[in-house]
């Protein structure tokens, strides 16, 4: 067992646990968007940043991937942590204005408006990559890809061509935190081997 502290509270974790897993075990809330227990953590949304302190020295680490270690001191509600959360949520409010889930999460952290321009009022995909990871890691198919890079990054199928690799299992729809996959799904899936309606029966 590994013993350390979160917000000065003594906690114990198993070997190989992450800080986030330990915090959740103890009911300590850390917000996340790209984390899902079914897939490996990817550290994309950075909402789960926490402050690692050692005396005067400190740095922020992503709790979803930071491995626990004996004697570390983690703080989940510091000004630096709040500053990161505030800006990520404020930017997400402008990038995914159509997502009530993101609005609710932002509100829960005191972010109720955004200073940034809204370019696409209908957007609700924040490119957390959960759909792609579940398809690759759990379903084993990679019908979904996160293509391009930088500001042009988007979710689609490999090379943005509809793919018949998709078996319409619906895993991506289930894990999508904002429901954005419902709009993307049809662009991923090519000529279905089996119509969706038939699958549902």
């Amino acid at each position: 067992m590994i013993t350390f502290t979160i917000n000065d509270q003594k906690v114990t974790a198993g070997k190989g646990w992450t800080v986030l897993e330990t915090a959740r075990e103890y009911g300590i809330e850390i917000p996340t968007l790209c984390h899902h227990p079914a897939v490996k953590p990817s550290g994309a949304c950075r909402l789960c940043m926490v402050e690692l302190k050692d005396g005067d020295w400190s740095k922020l680490v992503a709790s979803c991937i930071y491995p626990v270690a004996e004697g570390i001191n983690i703080y989940t509600e510091t000004p630096r942590v709040h500053n990161v959360r505030r800006w990520i949520l404020e930017m997400l409010l402008a990038s995914c204005p159509a997502s009530p889930e993101i609005s609710a999460l932002a509100e829960a952290h005191g972010v109720i408006s955004t200073r940034f321009k809204i370019h696409d009022p209908s957007q609700n995909c924040m490119i957390c990559g959960l759909c792609q990871r579940i398809c690759e890691e759990v379903v084993g198919l990679s019908a979904i890809a996160v293509v391009d890079r930088g500001v042009h990054k988007k979710v689609g199928s490999p090379f943005m061509r509809p793919t018949d690799v998709c078996v319409a299992c619906g895993c991506c729809l289930t894990v999508c935190p904002t429901g954005a996959m419902q709009n993307i799904f049809d662009t991923v899936r090519g000529e279905p081997k089996m119509p969706l309606t038939q699958l549902a029966m």
């Binding site: 990520i88 940034f116 924040m126 890079r149 930088g150 500001v151």
Partner: peptide
Amino acid sequence: EEESCGKCMPCRLGLSRMRE
């Protein structure tokens, strides 16, 4: 903005918002 991998949100969203 163009050259970042675009995976993490502070970089993908933040750099273009800074530029804005």
